[in-house]
């Protein structure tokens, strides 16, 4: 049910932040690809830069598409972010831990 008319107000202007966010996401992704393929940095440097770019892009997503600054209820926001961080850490760190077996024992 598209019940209230508030939406009309927030949609009346041109969605600059979305366009800028979209452009930045593409640029950052291409940049990461370029660094991975052509920069010639050492593996560690590449990893650090790519992870850094990923964090920047995550921030852009949260700010420009996911309206993180627009809510009145901050506890829900904090809770969601904490849960998301928990899942992200569990998945990424867990994967590295699980998949490292080959490196250690082979």
């Amino acid at each position: 049910m598209a019940s209230n008319n508030e939406q009309t107000n927030s949609h009346s202007h041109f969605p600059w932040s979305h366009v800028v966010g979209f452009g930045l996401s593409i640029v950052l992704t291409l940049l990461a690809l370029w660094i991975g393929f052509y920069s010639g940095f050492s593996l560690t440097t590449i990893m650090v830069i790519v992870v850094g770019l990923a964090l920047v892009q995550a921030t852009i997503q949260l700010l420009m598409f996911m309206h993180i600054t627009e809510s009145e209820d901050s506890t829900v926001q904090v809770g969601t972010i904490l849960y998301a961080v928990f899942i992200a850490v569990a998945v990424v760190a867990g994967t590295i831990w699980v998949m490292s077996f080959g490196m250690h024992y082979m």
């Binding site: 899942i87 998945v91 867990g94 699980v98 998949m99 077996f101 250690h104 024992y105």
Partner: peptide, 14 residues
């Protein structure tokens, strides 16, 4: 989200 490896214990992750 913390149990997924039990599907492949036999992979030998240690």
């Amino acid at each position: 989200f913390l149990v997924w490896v039990h599907h492949f214990f036999t992979m030998g992750a240690g």
